[in-house]
Simulated assay, not measured.
Amino acid sequence: MLRRAISSSSRNCGGALYQQCRKLSQRYTDATKSSAVNTMVLRSLKDHYLEVSNMSPPPKVAPPSEFLIVKGALDSNGPVLQRQYNNEEINISVMRLANIVEEDVAAADDDDDRINQLFVHIDVSKPAKHKSLNFLCGLYPDALGIHSVSLRPKSKSGEAIVFSPNMFTGPLFETLDEKTRDAFHNYIEERGINESLFPFLQAWLYVKDHRNLMRWFRSVGLFVSGQEAMKEIDQAKGAANPNAPRVARGT
């Protein structure tokens, strides 16, 4: 009887040990697969990062002399150029037209045409006014066309313009009579806003896109490798205990 009990106990222990080993083996297999996939992703990200970092930048282009480049513009979604005109402050923001139109419409255009189409926002403000005059324009190498003109509440310096879908932005520019349209074109032309801005703004967008792309490859790589998570943990620990010693980790 004792022998049967020992035998039964051995079988039970053996079965439990087998199940435990099987679970550990499965975890090891899953971890190995996950590690292999992560390695493939990281290798691909690194290859693309190096490829992008070796791309030749466009020649340096200066904006028209009356405009200044807004400090920190490459790392924000706010204005790119700024100038003073009499008592007015003029801010210019830009993005590629291909980034805001429908994908099927953009795909119908040639790549060169899409690159050469910029969407420009011009904000004209005065010290004593609570609103600013806004122009939304299409900018091309040889022309600038106004899409709309509206009065909007002033935005804070360096902030991107936020458009509310419920806000009346005025009539469609194309519905205005020709005399009024010409007058508005002369208004912005007098303030130095014309196709002469295109070379700088196109080169500036290239640099910004290049920087954002490299930042994306690096950030995703840090996340996949777990280093970004460790950085967040360190920051959280530091905030909870500012006097705790910090451990340096490689990037």
Score class of each variant (00 low, 15 high):
residue 176 L to M: 02
residue 200 F to M: 06
residue 218 R to Q: 15
residue 192 G to W: 01
residue 228 E to C: 04
residue 178 E to R: 08
residue 189 E to T: 15
residue 203 A to I: 02
residue 227 Q to A: 07
residue 177 D to I: 06
residue 177 D to W: 06
residue 218 R to A: 12
residue 197 L to N: 01
residue 196 S to Q: 14
residue 186 N to K: 13
residue 216 W to E: 14
residue 233 I to R: 10
residue 214 M to L: 14
residue 193 I to K: 05
residue 184 F to E: 01
residue 179 K to N: 05
residue 231 K to R: 03
residue 222 L to T: 06
residue 232 E to C: 08
residue 218 R to K: 13
residue 183 A to Q: 00
residue 216 W to F: 14
residue 213 L to H: 09
residue 228 E to D: 06
residue 205 L to H: 10
residue 199 P to H: 03
residue 200 F to V: 00
residue 186 N to G: 10
residue 216 W to C: 09
residue 236 A to F: 11
residue 207 V to G: 08
residue 184 F to K: 02
residue 213 L to I: 11
residue 235 Q to L: 10
residue 180 T to K: 05
residue 228 E to G: 02
residue 183 A to H: 01
residue 189 E to V: 03
residue 224 V to I: 14
residue 206 Y to F: 08
residue 205 L to Y: 02
residue 224 V to M: 04
residue 236 A to R: 12
residue 177 D to Y: 03
residue 231 K to T: 12
residue 211 R to Y: 13
residue 211 R to G: 12
residue 214 M to A: 01
residue 232 E to N: 14
residue 176 L to P: 04
residue 192 G to R: 04
residue 219 S to D: 09
residue 192 G to Q: 00
residue 186 N to Q: 09
residue 217 F to Q: 06
residue 207 V to I: 08
residue 199 P to K: 05
residue 207 V to C: 14
residue 178 E to V: 10
residue 211 R to L: 10
residue 189 E to N: 14
residue 190 E to F: 12
residue 220 V to Q: 07
residue 206 Y to M: 06
residue 179 K to E: 07
residue 213 L to E: 10
residue 230 M to V: 10
residue 202 Q to Y: 00
residue 185 H to I: 00
residue 181 R to P: 03
residue 196 S to G: 04
residue 193 I to V: 12
residue 212 N to R: 14
residue 232 E to Q: 09
residue 232 E to I: 13
residue 195 E to W: 05
residue 197 L to D: 03
residue 205 L to N: 00
residue 215 R to N: 07
residue 178 E to L: 14
residue 196 S to L: 06
residue 229 A to G: 12
residue 185 H to K: 12
residue 184 F to Q: 07
residue 199 P to E: 00
residue 223 F to D: 11
residue 199 P to F: 01
residue 178 E to M: 06
residue 225 S to G: 11
residue 228 E to W: 14
residue 216 W to K: 13
residue 234 D to N: 05
residue 180 T to Q: 08
residue 186 N to Y: 06
residue 206 Y to Q: 11
residue 230 M to F: 11
residue 193 I to N: 00
residue 185 H to C: 08
residue 212 N to V: 00
residue 186 N to W: 03
residue 228 E to Y: 13
residue 234 D to Q: 14
residue 231 K to C: 03
residue 203 A to T: 15
residue 188 I to L: 08
residue 232 E to K: 15
residue 185 H to M: 09
residue 183 A to R: 04
residue 179 K to P: 01
residue 195 E to T: 08
residue 211 R to Q: 15
residue 194 N to R: 03
residue 208 K to F: 01
residue 178 E to Y: 02
residue 183 A to Y: 11
residue 200 F to A: 03
residue 194 N to S: 12
residue 225 S to Y: 00
residue 220 V to H: 13
residue 214 M to D: 05
residue 222 L to A: 02
residue 191 R to N: 05
residue 225 S to R: 00
residue 212 N to Y: 10
residue 200 F to E: 02
residue 209 D to K: 10
residue 228 E to R: 12
residue 232 E to F: 10
residue 231 K to A: 12
